[in-house]
Write a protein that binds this DNA or RNA. Structure first.
Length: 936
DNA sequence: ACCTCCCGCCACTTC
DNA sequence: GAAGTGGCGGGAGGT
C-alpha cells in the first residue's frame, strides 16, 4: 500500500524514540496533510510552531515539514529540538486554522465519514512501514499520532488495540507503542486460527446459524440446544492470545484487557480463519462474542454494543486489508458481514509438517496446544521471562542508571507489572535492542571490567563478562534474527531468545540424540579467533538467529542446509558489511538450524505432533544438557513460541515451494530465498527479508542421524569472531541468559535490556546483532582450526565451525569438510507471499468454493453483481468450485497479496477442518445466502 | 427505519 | 490527584 512507502519514510529510526510528541505536532500536521487524502489541510502549517525555534529548517516550513515527514532523521531532529508542549501544539493548531480560510478550515474538518475509523486507520498505517526494519525506530507515541492525525487519542486507542491484537504493535510504555508492522501477522494469524479451531468456533458459528435458522422456523428447542453446545467453548475465549515474545506487552496492558477490543478483535479474526467460507456476519460474530461472555444475555443492548465494537474492529481490519465488507443476503434481508481477504493462514502446516512445524508450531503450540486459558500470555510468559532473566552483576549498575534515565525519558509503561515492563521493552524493541546494544556495550564493558576487578569472579561472571560483548551483539540479532525476516521483530522475540539462546550449551555428543551444541561465550571469545574478514559493523539487525539446531535424529540434513545456514550467517554478515551503507535489511537472515531447533522445540510443546517426538526429546536433552537443569521447559516453550511463529511463515512458503526438500531444509531455503529476494523496497512482501542470500541448495545429506545446527554454529562462530574486542566495540547488547555447564544458567533480567535500551534511544543504534548462542557456539572452534575449506573469508568461519562441529560430533570424518555455499543471490519473492503491495487495487478472488449444498452464499461485487457462490455453511462435501468468480475488492487490495489467494486457497483446508469439527455432530440447515461486497 | 459508527463520558488503572 | 486507557452507549450521519 501506499502506506508502506510513506511508512518507510515516516517511520522513524529509533532515535525518534525520544521525540516529544508535542514537538512533532507541527510536523505531524504536515504529515497528516500529506497523508490525508481527505483533508484539505494542504496549507502550510504554522511556521513558528511547526519548527522548533532553533531549527535551521524552519524557514521553509512546508518543505521542511514534508521532508521531515519523509525523513525520519529530520523528524527526529526536530523532535529532539522541539520543546513544544501541549500548549504549543494547540497554538499550532490555531495557527493552522488561522492560515486556513474558513472554507479550508471546514474542509480540514473532515466530515463524519472522513473521520471514520477506517480512514483514520489508513492514515495511521500510512505512517509506518508494513515491515519495519529492525534498524528503524518504530515507536508510536499516541499523543503524537493523535495530533498528527488530528484525532482524539481515544480513537487511536481503538486502532492500536486492534493492531495490538494482531501483534502489529505492542505497548511499550505509557503513551507509547512499538510498531512491528506485519512481521508478526502471519504468526498471529496462525496462532489465532489454531486457537479458533481449538475453541471450535466453527462449531459455534454453525450452531448460531442453526439457531437462527431454527428461530426462523420457530424452533426454540434447537436453539436452546445450540446455545448449550456453543456454551462450552466459550470459557476460554476471553483470554488474549499472545505470541511468544509479545506476551508481556499485551499482558501488561491492564486488567481490562480481557474485555478489551483486543480480545474481541482476535476472536473476530478467529471466526474468519476457522470458517470455511471466510465470511462472517456481524450478527454471528456478535453472538459468538457475547456468547462467550454470557450466552444467556443476548439482550439487545449488549448485542448492539457488541455490534458497535465489531464495526470498530472491522474498520481497522478493513484498513489492514484483512477483511472487507460484504453483505449476506438471506431471506430476511441482507446482513452486514465481512469477508476475509487477508493472507491465507496455514495453521496445520506446523502440525503436519515437522520441519515447518518448528516455526509454525512454536507459536501455534503455545497458543493452541494449551488450553485457551493457558494461552493467555499473562499466565504463561511473564513469569518465565522474568524468572529466567538474571541480571548480570556487572550490568546492575548500568541498568539502574538506564532505568532511571528511562523514567525520565518517558513515562513508564502503564502496564501493570514492572516486570512486565522490562520484558515488554526488551521484547518489544528489537531494533532498539540493537541500538542499545551498540550504545551500551561500551558502557557495559567498562562496567563489567570494573566489576570484574572488584567483584569476586564466579565462573559465571567471568563468562558473562567475557561474553558480554559478544552476547550483547548477538542477542539483538538473535532476537530479531528470528529466521524470518518478517519475524525480525525483535520485541517479541528477544525475551524468549534470550532464554533459549542465551544458555550456552556445551557440545555434547549423544550418539543417538539430536542435540544442539553451544559453547560458552567466554570460551568462544577466548578460543575464537577474530577474523578481520568479518567486520562487525552496525548492521541492521542481522537475522542471525542463534538457533541451536536440533535436528531430528532420523531426519536427513542436507549439508547444503547446514551450509546454507552458515552461508546465510556469513552472507548475512557480509551483506551487512556491504550493505550497511544501504541500511538494507540484509541482516535478516534466517538460519535453518534455528528453525529446526525451534521446530523441534515446538514439537516438544506440541504433543500433537508425533513425528517430531524424537526431535522433541532431543531438544529437551539438549536443553537439559546445556543448561544443566531442566530449563528446557521454560526456555523451550518460550523459545519455541517465538520461533514458531516466525518459522510458520516460512513454512507456508516452504510447503508451497519446496516439498521435496527436507522440511527443515525447505524452511531454511525459503527463508533464505525470501531474505535474499527482499529489499527494503519490498517491504511490502510478506516476508520482510529485504535482502536474502541465496545459499546453495545443493543437498548434501548428512548421514549422521543427528541434526546439528551447523548454520548456527557457523553463525556463532562468526559471531564469536565478532565477539572479539573489535566487535565488541561495534555492537553491544544486553545479555541473554547464559548457561554454563558449571555455573548453570545465568539469566539476565529483562530489565537489563530495558535499561540498555534506554540509552539506545539517544544514540544511533548499532545494528549488528549476533545471537549469543551462536557466539557461544562458535567460540569453541578456532578460526584457524576451522578454516579448512573456505573460499570466502566470510564463509570460512562458519564453514570451519561447521566442519569442526561435525567432526567434533563425529558426524563426519575428521578429514571431511563441508563447505557452506555462500552464494548471495537475491531471490525473487513469490507473489503469493508478498502480502501486501501498496499499489494493488483490485484483487480477484479466483475461486470460491462451491459446495454441494442447497444453500449457498452468493458473493456480490461492489456493483451488485454476484461474483461467486459460497456455501453458507460448510457442507460436508465441498466441491471445488468450477465457477470461480472474481470479486472485486474495493479497498487497498494487494494484487499479489496473499489475501486474494489465501482466503480461497485456505478455504479448502479450512473447510476440511471445519467439516471435521463442525459437521461431525452437528447438522446445520443451510440457507441460501447472498453475499455482496460493500465498499468500505 | 435501519445501518454505521463517531464521539466522548466516565470508570478503571497507573503513576 | 492527574494522566492514561478504554468500555460503553447515545445519538447523528448515511443510505
Amino acid at each position: 500500500m501506499g502506506s508502506e512507502e510513506k511508512e518507510n519514510h515516516s517511520s522513524k529510526p529509533q532515535q525518534n524514540v525520544l521525540k516529544t510528541p508535542l514537538k512533532q505536532a507541527a510536523t505531524s500536521h504536515s504529515v497528516l496533510t500529506e497523508i490525508q487524502p481527505d483533508s484539505g489541510l494542504l496549507t502550510t502549517p504554522p511556521k513558528s510552531k511547526e519548527v522548533p525555534h532553533g531549527d535551521p529548517w524552519t524557514p521553509t516550513a512546508n518543505l521542511k515539514i514534508l521532508i521531515s515527514a519523509a525523513s525520519p532523521e529530520i523528524r527526529n531532529r526536530e523532535q529532539k529540538k522541539g520543546l513544544s508542549d501541549r500548549s504549543e501544539t494547540v497554538e499550532t493548531k490555531h495557527c493552522l486554522h488561522e492560515h486556513l480560510s474558513g472554507d479550508e478550515y471546514e474542509r480540514s474538518q473532515p466530515s463524519r465519514k472522513e473521520k471514520s475509523l477506517g480512514l483514520l486507520c489508513h492514515r495511521f498505517l500510512a505512517r509506518y512501514p508494513n515491515y519495519p526494519s529492525i534498524a528503524e525506530n518504530s515507536d508510536i507515541c499516541l499523543d503524537e499520532v493523535a495530533e498528527e492525525l488530528n484525532v482524539e487519542r481515544r480513537r487511536i486507542y481503538d486502532i492500536v488495540n486492534v493492531l495490538e491484537s494482531l501483534h502489529m504493535v505492542s505497548r511499550l510504555a505509557k503513551n507509547r507503542y512499538a510498531w512491528y508492522g506485519r512481521h508478526n501477522l502471519n504468526r498471529t494469524l496462525q496462532t489465532l486460527k489454531k486457537v479458533g479451531e481449538e475453541n471450535k468456533y466453527t462449531q459455534q458459528i454453525e450452531m448460531i446459524k442453526k439457531r437462527e435458522y431454527d428461530f426462523e422456523l420457530d424452533n426454540d428447542k434447537n436453539e436452546e440446544m445450540a446455545t448449550k453446545l456453543v456454551g462450552p467453548n466459550e470459557h476460554s475465549e476471553m483470554c488474549f492470545v499472545e505470541l511468544p515474545g509479545m506476551e508481556f506487552r499485551a499482558a501488561s496492558v491492564n486488567s481490562r484487557k480481557d474485555k478489551s477490543l483486543r480480545v474481541m478483535s482476535q476472536k473476530f479474526v478467529m471466526l474468519f480463519l476457522v470458517s470455511t467460507p471466510q465470511i462472517v456476519s456481524l450478527e454471528v460474530a456478535a453472538r459468538i462474542l457475547i456468547g462467550e461472555d454470557h450466552v444467556e444475555d443476548l439482550d439487545k443492548s449488549k448485542f448492539k454494543t457488541k455490534i458497535r465494537r465489531l464495526y470498530d474492529i472491522a474498520n481497522v481490519l478493513s484498513s489492514l486489508e484483512l477483511i472487507k465488507k460484504v453483505h449476506v443476503k438471506e431471506e430476511r434481508g441482507r446482513k452486514p458481514a465481512f469477508k476475509w481477504t487477508g493472507p491465507e493462514v496455514l495453521p496445520d502446516t506446523q502440525d503436519t509438517k515437522p520441519l515447518t512445524t518448528t516455526t509454525s508450531l512454536v507459536p501455534s503450540n503455545s497458543a493452541k496446544s494449551k488450553s485457551p486459558k493457558e494461552q493467555c500470555s499473562k499466565n504463561l510468559f511473564p513469569l518465565r521471562g522474568k524468572q529466567n532473566f538474571t541480571r548480570h552483576p556487572s550490568l546492575i549498575k548500568l541498568v539502574k542508571t538506564i532505568e532511571s534515565d528511562r523514567r525520565k525519558i518517558h513515562s513508564a509503561p502503564s502496564s501493570p507489572s514492572k516486570t512486565s515492563t522490562h520484558n515488554d521493552q526488551k521484547s518489544s524493541l528489537p531494533s532498539k535492542m540493537a541500538q542499545l546494544a551498540a550504545i551500551c556495550k561500551p558502557q557495559i564493558e567498562e562496567q563489567s571490567r570494573e566489576l570484574k576487578m572488584k567483584l569476586t569472579r564466579s565462573p559465571l561472571e567471568c563468562k558473562l563478562s567475557s561474553s558480554d560483548e559478544s552476547l550483547l551483539k548477538c542477542e539483538p540479532n538473535t532476537t530479531s534474527s528470528c529466521q524470518n525476516p518478517s519475524l525480525v521483530q525483535p520485541l517479541g522475540v528477544l525475551p524468549l531468545i534470550h532464554n533459549s539462546v542465551s544458555p550456552v550449551m556445551l557440545p555434547q555428543t549423544h550418539s543417538a540424540i539430536s542435540y544442539a551444541i553451544y559453547l560458552h561465550p567466554s570460551q568462544a571469545q577466548t578460543v575464537t579467533t577474530y577474523s578481520p574478514s568479518f567486520t562487525l559493523q552496525s548492521v541492521p539487525c542481522p537475522n542471525v538467529t542463534r538457533t541451536k539446531s536440533v535436528l531430528d535424529g532420523n531426519s536427513k540434513i542436507p549439508l547444503s542446509q547446514m551450509t546454507t545456514g552458515q552461508g546465510d550467517s556469513n552472507a548475512s554478515e557480509v551483506s551487512v558489511a556491504n550493505l550497511m551503507a544501504k541500511e538494507t535489511q540484509v541482516t535478516k537472515i534466517e538460519f535453518t538450524p534455528e528453525k529446526c531447533l525451534k521446530r523441534s522445540q515446538a514439537l516438544q510443546e506440541n504433543s500433537s505432533i508425533k513425528k517430531c517426538k524424537s526431535d522433541e526429546k532431543s531438544l529437551e536433552d539438549v536443553y537439559t544438557v546445556s543448561n544443566g537443569h531442566s530449563v528446557k521447559g521454560e526456555r523451550t516453550s518460550s523459545s519455541t513460541l517465538h520461533l514458531k511463529p516466525e518459522i510458520s511463515n516460512f513454512q507456508e512458503e516452504n510447503q508451497h515451494k519446496s516439498e521435496k526438500l527436507d522440511q527443515n531444509v525447505e524452511c531454511c531455503f525459503d527463508h533464505e530465498r525470501k531474505g535474499l529476494s527482499e529489499d527494503k523496497s519490498r517491504s511490502s512482501t510478506t516476508q520482510e527479508m529485504p535482502v536474502a542470500f541465496a545459499v546453495s541448495t545443493h543437498e548434501t545429506l548428512f548421514s549422521s542421524g543427528y541434526l546439528i545446527p551447523l548454520a548456527q554454529c557457523s553463525q556463532n562462530s562468526n559471531e564469536a569472531i565478532f565477539s572479539n574486542k573489535e566487535n565488541s566495540g561495534i555492537c553491544s547488547l544486553p545479555h541473554v541468559t547464559y548457561s554454563s555447564p558449571i555455573a548453570g544458567v545465568i539469566p539476565v533480567t529483562a530489565s537489563e535490556f530495558t535499561a540498555v535500551n534506554i540509552p539506545a534511544f539517544h544514540v544511533t543504534p548499532l545494528k549488528l546483532m549476533v545471537p549469543p548462542s551462536s557466539i557461544a557456539a562458535a567460540p569453541v572452534v578456532n578460526s584457524s582450526c576451522l578454516n579448512s575449506s573456505h573460499s570466502n573469508p566470510v564463509q570460512n568461519p562458519s564453514s570451519s565451525i561447521l566442519n569442526f562441529t561435525l567432526q567434533h560430533l563425529g558426524l563426519i570424518p575428521a578429514g571431511m569438510q563441508v563447505s557452506p555455499n555462500p552464494v548471495l543471490q537475491p531471490v525473487p519473492i513469490s507473489p503469493k507471499q508478498e502480502s501486501v503491495s501498496p499499489v494493488s487495487e483490485n484483487v480477484t478472488l479466483q475461486q470460491e468454493r462451491v459446495f454441494k449444498t442447497e444453500s449457498n452464499i452468493t458473493v456480490y461485487d461492489l456493483n451488485g453483481k454476484s461474483s461467486a457462490v459460497i456455501p453458507l455453511q460448510q457442507s460436508r462435501i465441498p466441491v471445488k468450485s468450477k465457477e470461480s468468480q472474481s470479486v472485486t475488492e474495493s479497498f487497498f487490495r494487494t494484487p499479489g497479496g496473499p489475501n486474494a489467494i489465501s482466503s480461497l486457497s485456505s478455504s479448502p483446508s479450512n473447510s476440511d477442518c471445519a467439516d471435521g469439527i463442525s459437521h461431525g455432530n452437528l447438522f446445520v440447515p443451510q440457507r441460501k445466502l447472498e453475499v455482496s461486497e460493500d465498499q468500505l
